[in-house]
Design a binder for these strands. Structure first.
Length: 315
DNA sequence: CATTAGCG
DNA sequence: GCTAATG
């Protein structure tokens, strides 16, 4: 098994340095400091040698734009995975402001100004404020700018192919309500990233407990919001609703509902770790102790092996 | 070595 | 924050 990679590679460190640059600007510190951190990040991406090696050989200063401060940050990142400068900035800047910078047309100064006036920290809130024309009441922002921000957000979403939480939730709730009404079943639950309240959603996952899958699948693909049917099977069906949002429906036996819900809620990384714990400890679990980790890990084993049998792919 | 202008 | 120039 490959060793746990706590070691930051060059690219990961460059990413942190770039983020330090953004945070410096958001905080309102000297812009040239931010510029320096970004210049150092660029130089690091061009390196052909691992930073950990340069640290050992005390040759960090040979990298362009790396002086005492940046070198210290790099050393800390290599050694511990975190940097004090980065942590301090994170503490000083409202969480979420960083994500507003993703919107083309919204730079550090604008992000700060919007936050100071409206306490906006997410792209959803920004979009809502723009729609309500609350942005153009702010200094330096007029109708044209507000419009550009809306377009940028739309383009952003187009690129990532993901939906915002509230949109995906609306579509998912509608489908769940429809299925509950038509099937009379109670255990129809949203899983996946939507259940984890991620702020953007790739696909919506819905899990149903039932031994009679086919009629449920038939109702699902015939739902009024469905624009297109991607697949219809006994354990899983996929449809497209709204403008491009995909919904996957899984029907599982009632006795597997808990395990399935756990499994399909993910994340994938979470599942991998949970499964690892379960495999490692299985031999020692002969039925003595109760613990949530144990129960979750056993469920994960059952769900993942069941999934392998039916050759259904995870999220 | 310390100070400082310039940097985009 | 870094670099190069200056004294």
């Amino acid at each position: 098994m490959p060793r746990e990679a706590l070691t930051f590679d060059n690219d990961a460190i460059a990413k942190v340095l770039d983020e330090i640059g953004d945070l410096i600007e958001l905080k309102g510190e000297n812009v040239f400091r931010a510029v320096t951190y970004r210049a150092a990040a660029r130089a690091i991406r061009d390196l052909r040698e691992p930073l950990s090696k340069l640290v050992e050989e005390k040759r960090l200063k040979e990298i362009p734009k790396v002086g005492p401060s940046v070198a210290e940050a790099i050393e800390q990142l290599v050694a511990t995975g975190v940097s004090k400068r980065h942590a301090d900035l994170q503490a000083a800047v409202p969480p979420g402001l960083l994500t507003l910078l993703r919107v083309p047309g919204v730079g550090p100064a604008t992000a700060r100004m919007i936050y100071d006036h409206l306490r906006i920290t997410t792209i959803e809130e920004l979009e809502e404020a723009a729609r309500d024309h609350r942005l153009q009441q702010l200094p330096k922002i007029q109708a044209k700018t507000e419009e550009n921000i809306l377009k940028s957000i739309a383009a952003l979403r187009q690129r990532t192919g993901r939906s915002l939480l509230h949109e995906a939730r609306a579509s998912a709730s509608e489908m769940v309500a429809y299925l509950k009404e038509r099937t009379g079943l109670e255990r129809i639950v949203v899983a996946g990233s939507l259940r984890r309240y991620r702020e953007t959603i790739g696909d919506v996952d819905i899990v149903v407990a039932s031994d009679a899958a086919p009629p449920i699948m038939a109702m699902f693909v015939a739902a009024p919001t469905v624009e297109r049917v991607l697949a219809q099977g006994d354990t899983k069906s996929s449809v497209v609703v709204d403008r491009g949002l995909q919904i996957d429906l899984r029907v599982v036996p009632p006795e597997s509902f808990g395990a399935a819900l756990l499994y399909f809620t993910g994340s994938k990384e979470h599942n991998v770790r949970l499964r690892g714990i379960a495999l490692r400890r299985r031999s020692r679990w002969t039925g003595s102790r109760r613990s949530s980790v144990r129960i979750a890990a056993r469920s994960m084993l059952r769900a993942s092996t069941a999934c392998r049998r039916s050759s259904t792919s995870p999220t």
